[in-house]
Amino acid sequence: MPTHTANLFSIATGSSQPIYRQLVEQVRRLSASGQLRPGDEMPSVREIAQALALNPMTVSKAYSLLEMDGVLARRRGLGMVVAESAPAQPADRAGLLRPTLERAAVEARQLELDPETVLSLFATILKETK
């Protein structure tokens, strides 16, 4: 099974999203897209804390939440691994995009854009980034 390093993560300070949330969502996205596979070993709390210069309690908090949600599992002697579970359904995966789109929706409202303009812009962006 592959072992991942702290390179998996990139965090942004100065965001309205707390760092533990960023870590949680990154793991969810990577696991939904299959970049993290069941049984993969996750980097240790200490390794992530050291590599990203974060308080280890923040990293622990993210891992505990992911464990509670069944995304990660604690394995004796191995630390955290990606849980053996059914791959995310497309509907679940779309749900992961929701927080990002909610932020975009707030900005669209501030700019007083109508829904059609916003949706056609998003369609264009999706084509461009294919």
């Binding site: 300070t13 100065g14 760092i19 210069a53 974060l54 308080n55 309690m57 923040t58």
Partner: peptide, 10 residues
């Protein structure tokens, strides 16, 4: 330096 605090201050 708020970014430092975000990283380490729980």
């Amino acid at each position: 330096i708020l970014s430092d605090l975000e990283r380490v201050a729980f």
